[in-house]
Design a binder for these strands. Structure first.
Lengths: 230, 230
DNA sequence: CGTTTATTTGAAAACGCTCAAGCTCTGTGG
DNA sequence: CCACAGAGCTTGAGCGTTTTCAAATAAACG
């Protein structure tokens, strides 16, 4: 693929142009419709992905049970752990919106991380940050109940989208329920319970009409919520 | 500290001796009694630790609620994520046995990962593996209930310790309960429920008298259990 | 407009937690 | 050797949260 696009990517910031070119050569930009599995769980990773546009859900399914580890937006890097360790994929990646992704063959990534120190360092930063995201998710899942997770999610998203009167949820409630670690039925009930406490849904429009009340429920903490600083 | 000890550590495998020496200079080997907090949550990480002997619990506590993210044994590396990202510690590290650790100043780690490509690569491998451990923990916590987590833990530990008639639990039941994401009371009940299904505790001796039965309960899966392949 | 999919609601059950009390094991000092 | 204290573990009852199953309603799509 052309080096122009790939050079913009944070993963390649400050990386030697010749390395970027070598990586770009066997890589390509691919468009996907919604609901396509980019990487199946349990098998080796063939590609490192960079999400340029759209949305991807990281989820695991075993014997009828499933959960969502995260929802990624541009410009996230996918599958770094499996590519680096050259091991099986622990959680499936699935588009949940029309998406455009850069696909970099796993072998060339492993080659480059041995040859190019700067690229290796970029990969390290991203992997460490991803690891921390899973720690936060684990903290949130174990230390909060459903109401608190929903309130915290709403405040987080509200903050990211500019703290206006409302923000737009970019995915279905089903996806949100999975992300928050609850069933859709439960999300529906929890939502109803928060209508008097500062949060109202109308379709995909989410109205935060009493952030203070939500904050007192969520008890935001830098150990869980990315948008909060110490 | 002396380079002899530090060179044995997996983190420094194949790393240039001069880098190792530079890192070793401001580092030191420290003995700790049990129940000492090595790194407090919410504050920047001062050191990267390598556990040479003993046992460390990774846990988070927020407003009276707490949970355990993992229990580490030699020769694990601790705090890599916080050191690499130069950010706050998301989960406290606490010794749960008399322990000996190498303490490497965070600044020298960050210095070395910029200067030495091999060291950076070692750090990347370890961080990626750690990230996967958290993914597995997340999978286990969300996709299994208490009985299944206990059965899976027993089989895992049994396998690691050689698949004999029994194995020794190297920590208290309280610690095990936290690791499995349940209260001590609940662990006790769950344990009682498994006595007819292949698992019996007597003190710290854990008898696996019917692994097949346990397997049918735990439903081991490579997406959760480290000891299972494919 | 009709068919599919998403969401809501209700009732019952499963699961795990809290609180309280009792038990067991261990080590200490008399 | 015994009494006692303390920690760790177990047991029971009651409670709260979350899930499951079933059905109804609403929304989305061709």
């Amino acid at each position: 693929m052309d080096t122009g696009t790939i050079k913009q990517i944070d993963l390649f910031r400050s990386v030697d142009p010749s390395t970027v070119e070598t990586i770009a050569a066997p890589s390509f930009l691919q468009n996907f419709p919604s609901n396509v599995v980019l990487a199946r769980q349990g098998v080796p990773a063939d590609f490192l992905f960079v999400l340029m546009d759209g949305m991807v859900e990281i989820r695991t399914e075993i014997a009828e049970r499933q959960h969502t580890l995260g929802i990624l937006e541009p410009t996230s890097v996918l599958m770094a752990d499996a590519v680096v360790t050259d091991d099986i994929v622990l959680a499936e990646c699935r588009t949940i919106a029309v998406s455009r992704l850069v696909m970099i063959p796993a072998a060339i990534v492993r080659w480059a991380m041995e040859r190019d120190a700067v690229f290796c360092r970029r990969l390290l930063s991203i992997t460490a940050e991803t690891s921390r995201t899973y720690m936060r998710q684990l903290n949130g899942q174990k230390l909060r109940n459903g109401i608190e997770r929903l309130a915290a999610w709403a405040l987080d998203e509200w903050k990211v989208q500019g703290e206006g009167e409302a923000f737009e949820m970019r995915h279905s409630k089903r996806v949100l329920a999975n992300l928050l670690g609850m069933t859709p039925e439960n999300l529906s009930r929890t939502l109803a319970g928060l209508e008097d406490s500062g949060l109202r849904f109308s379709g995909r429009r989410v109205e935060v009409w009493n952030p203070d009340r939500l904050r007192s429920i969520a008890d935001l903490d830098p150990l869980i919520d990315r948008s909060v600083r110490g």
